[in-house]
Design a protein around this nucleic acid. Structure first.
Length: 491
RNA sequence: AGCGGUAUCGUCUAGUGGUUAGGACGGGAGAUUCUCAUUCUCCAAACAGGGGUUCAAUUCCCCUUACCGCCGCCA
């Protein structure tokens, strides 16, 4: 593992892992993988009020489920810990003091009210607000006075006025006039660091070499670079990713549906599909093959080729992709994943083997695992409601088909459990039946099958008919056929 | 308001100083299958606008427009 390339994802546990954060994590992970570097997870839980343990757990679980495993982090440790920001509170004041001593920072005794006033003034004059530097050169006496009043100072970084340029890995050259920034707070009056200060100290101490994050951080970057420089530290490389937007071009938020990875999983999206889809937002495979594992993507990944524009999160393509993964997934794994979505059925009715077969023949139309719930009721229970197919079953055609079908069923062999044993015969008999009735009565093959399907499932659409018969077994098939015949025969 | 960013089919994107501007999702048409769905084939669909530079701009430069982000003692 190369020691020079170190990237990180630093989520703040004030909510479940957001899909946007997941994408940022992915690009960091990909870069680390591709460059043989180290991927670090740091939890930025400075905001005690919004931080919850359940969110921390959710972040861990989601990242793991997505396959974005970290090399260093709160749980696995590492050389540069602790990796939880709240456990690092004692280290920030030291660096703040260092900046104070060197004259890169100064105490600010302004009250919120004073600051508020400055801002209002600026708004009134249609000026961009920059701190007045009123506390830059206060006298010893004033300071004593403030202390006596019980005021606690914040520490502000003294921003040097200059043109600051850096080369962003995805955006290219970015220029800023730092005189527009204003001296910003690095330590709050309550003794805790601000975000901009804490990230720099943490990234510096954790030897993060490349910072890949959302473009909402672009305007933080000059501030952070200034701090690195004042500290005499090596400035890392930056890469700013475009944002993920909702279809209405606003920020992806709860009102658009799922935003957390775990929400998507609850709806039945596969994490493999999710991460694959999200990779395609900004990145394109060189071979045109879009369905790829994270490891395959990593091989093909070049950070400079990431699109620098925002991209819209379109469910259509995600749905398609999820369907692709569902169709290709190992059937045992898929069955395991689907079981939670079948809670309204009594799964003990089916053996594991039958359950897997049911999944096998019902997986095709699924876009999301949750969809299966409505597609499988007829695999459970003895009988099925026929209300939806009453009309269809009332036809002469159905009568003829079911009469013949019943005859066939009675001829099919079963084992001790009442399950059919000769699948091939069933398959062939049904094929013959279709051919036969087509010839004799001119029934279309699908019409013949509709009658049988209606009788057995109560529906006109569904899974492979032979498979259904194999799963249900003779007793249920007989029962349901006879039941349907009450309609066809007008009993 | 200021500062920064972005601009190729509806969406995600490929691509180039000279191309029939390519693919994927979605849409439309058709074929296959016992239905639905799959799968396959075909079709429609884009270089935001205006100036330059150039023999030639979708591509390079500038402006406009639109959209996004940031302007906290939040992260």
């Amino acid at each position: 593992m190369s020691d020079d390339i170190r990237v990180r994802i630093a989520p703040s546990p004030s909510g479940n892992l957001h899909i946007g954060t997941a994408r940022t994590a992915l690009f960091n992970y990909l870069y680390a993988k591709k460059m043989n570097g180290t991927f670090v997870l740091r939890i930025e839980d400075t905001d005690a009020e919004r931080t919850k343990q359940e969110y921390i757990d959710n972040i861990f679980d989601s990242l793991k489920a997505l396959g974005l495993n970290w090399d260093e982090g709160p749980d696995v440790g590492g050389e540069y810990g602790p990796y939880t920001q709240s456990e690092r509170f004692d280290i920030y004041p030291k660096y703040a003091q260092m900046l104070l001593d060197k004259g890169y920072a100064y105490e600010c005794w302004c009250t919120n009210e004073e600051l508020e006033q400055e801002k209002e003034e600026a708004v009134k004059n249609k000026q961009a607000y920059v701190y007045s530097r009123k506390c830059l050169n206060i006298t010893k006496e004033q300071r004593e006075q403030y202390i006596k009043e019980g005021r606690k100072p914040a520490i502000r970084f003294k921003v040097e006025h200059k043109e600051l340029v850096f080369n962003d890995m995805v955006k290219g050259e970015l220029k800023f006039d730092t005189s527009l920034i204003g001296d910003f707070v690095i330590m709050k009056s309550n003794g805790t660091p601000t975000y901009n200060f804490a990230v720099v100290i943490d990234d510096m101490l954790m030897k993060i070499s490349h910072i890949i994050r959302g473009e909402d951080h672009i305007s933080n970057t000059p501030k952070q670079i200034l701090i690195y420089e004042a500290l005499g530290a090596k400035v890392p490389e930056f890469g700013h990713l475009g944002m993920i937007l909702a279809p209405d071009r606003s920020k992806l938020s709860k009102r658009h549906g799922a935003t957390a990875v775990s929400d998507f999983v609850k709806e039945g999206y596969l994490t493999d599909a999710l991460i694959n889809f999200v990779a395609l937002l900004g990145w394109a495979p060189s071979d045109g093959q879009e369905i790829k594992t994270v490891d395959e993507i990593a091989q093909d990944f070049r950070i400079h080729e990431i699109s620098s524009s925002n991209s819209i999160f379109e469910y259509d393509k995600l749905n398609w992709m999820n369907g692709q993964y569902i169709k290709k997934m190992d059937i045992k794994k898929l069955t395991d994943m689907i079981i939670p979505f079948l809670s309204k059925y009594d799964l003990s009715e089916l053996s594991r083997e039958k359950l897997e077969r049911m999944v096998l023949i019902t997986r095709e139309p699924l876009t999301v695992l949750k969809d299966i719930e409505d597609d499988v009721p007829y695999f459970f229970g003895k009988n099925v409601p026929l209300d939806e197919v009453k009309e269809l079953l009332s036809s002469e055609l159905s009568k003829n088909v079911l009469t013949k079908f019943l005859e066939l069923v009675n001829g099919w062999e079963t084992d001790g459990n009442g399950d059919f044993t000769d699948e091939e015969k069933i398959h062939n008999d049904l094929a013959d039946l279709r051919a036969d009735f087509k010839e004799k009565f001119g029934y279309k093959p699908k019409e013949t099958m509709w009658a049988i399907r209606a009788a057995i499932t109560g529906r006109t659409r569904g899974a492979d008919m032979v498979g259904i018969l194999m799963i249900l077994g003779k007793d249920k098939v007989l029962l349901r056929t006879k039941n349907a015949q009450k309609i066809t025969l007008g009993v």
